[in-house]
Design a protein around this nucleic acid. Structure first.
Length: 293
DNA sequence: CAAGGCTCCTGATAGC
DNA sequence: TGCTATCAGGAGCCTT
């Protein structure tokens, strides 16, 4: 559920609260939370201890904390329900607390009120996790080298994305969710961008014209920037920033979760269709299906 | 190689 | 009341 805007909100929180701080020790409370760290929990904890966090970075839905004095980074993915929370050490443990990172007393550039806080990875559905990786020459954790730039990245290549659509024999929503073509877009913002662009989710990508690709990318950027401006989307308490607060964008959703509610453009009842083990929400009038399919 | 399907997981909720 | 089925779904991995 956390997509680009939600992950970016978390990244900004980490920048303020844990950037520059030095790890005192790490506690792994559930092995699944570090399953991408193949060397195991002990190695993960040892690899962090005594190291200082640099400025947190993000690509798509991944974020990572470079270790200031080495060529490695702590990579984080929130999965469905992951949360990175900054809590005082006195705060009682959350039910689904998976990893705790304690810091030394030196703040090293973090906000003064970060004193006495620790970083917690909490994850109910355990699809997310943390891991430690070598960086590629461009400072990216090696295991996410295949993740494309996201559409809010100034270096995102619109023309390359368009050509990839032309070459592909897939359909547009699959392409939007393919993180090696464009990253950061998940089920919610894919449906929102498609609704804004009046495109059915099963439209073949090979037929896309340059203007159509440009319009879709523009809507994707707009909707994610609007969500970012209000702190992201949340339907329940699962998605929150590092202080445990939810965003407000769910009040602005035009497609996702609006089955049987009137389309905000034409009033036609919105539909939900099972799709790829999840759901697609669309307006049957504004977003006409392609001829075949 | 590309495309698409399967699977991991927990908790809320609906239905009987 | 208490059980079961369904849904939420990102991304690595596997099959075709």
């Amino acid at each position: 559920m956390p997509e680009l805007p939600e992950v970016e909100v978390v990244r900004r929180g980490l920048e303020r609260w844990v950037g520059g701080r030095t790890v005192a020790d790490v506690e792994v409370l559930h092995p699944r939370a570090i399953r991408r760290h193949l060397a195991g929990a002990e190695d993960f904890a040892l690899g962090l201890k005594g190291h200082r966090f640099g400025a947190p970075m993000r690509r798509g839905k991944y974020l990572w904390l470079p270790l200031a004095d080495s060529d490695t980074s702590v990579l984080a993915h929130l999965g469905m329900s992951g949360q990175l929370l900054v809590k005082t050490q006195q705060t009682p443990d959350e039910k689904h607390l998976r990893i705790r990172v304690r810091f030394t007393d030196e703040l090293g550039g973090a906000a003064p009120d970060a004193a006495g806080t620790e970083l917690r990875f909490v994850d109910q559905r355990t699809f997310g996790g943390l891991s430690l990786h070598e960086n590629t020459p461009d400072g990216l954790p090696d295991v996410i080298a295949h993740i494309a730039r996201d559409p809010l990245d100034p270096l995102f290549d619109d023309e390359a994305f368009h050509q990839a659509l032309r070459r592909s024999r897939s359909t547009i929503k699959r392409a939007l969710l393919n993180q090696s073509l464009i990253s950061g877009v998940g089920n919610i913002y894919a449906d929102e961008a498609l609704w804004r662009a009046r495109l059915h989710y099963e439209r073949p990508t090979a037929t896309f014209t340059r203007p159509r690709t440009a319009e879709l990318l523009g809507h994707a950027r707009d909707v994610m920037n609007e969500a970012l401006a209000v702190g992201g989307t949340s339907f329940d308490s699962l998605y929150v920033n590092v202080n445990g607060e939810s965003g407000y964008f769910d009040r602005s959703l035009d497609a996702y979760g609006r089955e049987d509610e009137p389309c905000r453009r034409c009033g036609t009842p919105m539909r939900r269709r099972p799709w790829m083990n999840r759901s697609s929400y669309f307006c049957p009038r504004c977003q006409r299906p392609p001829r075949l399919s």
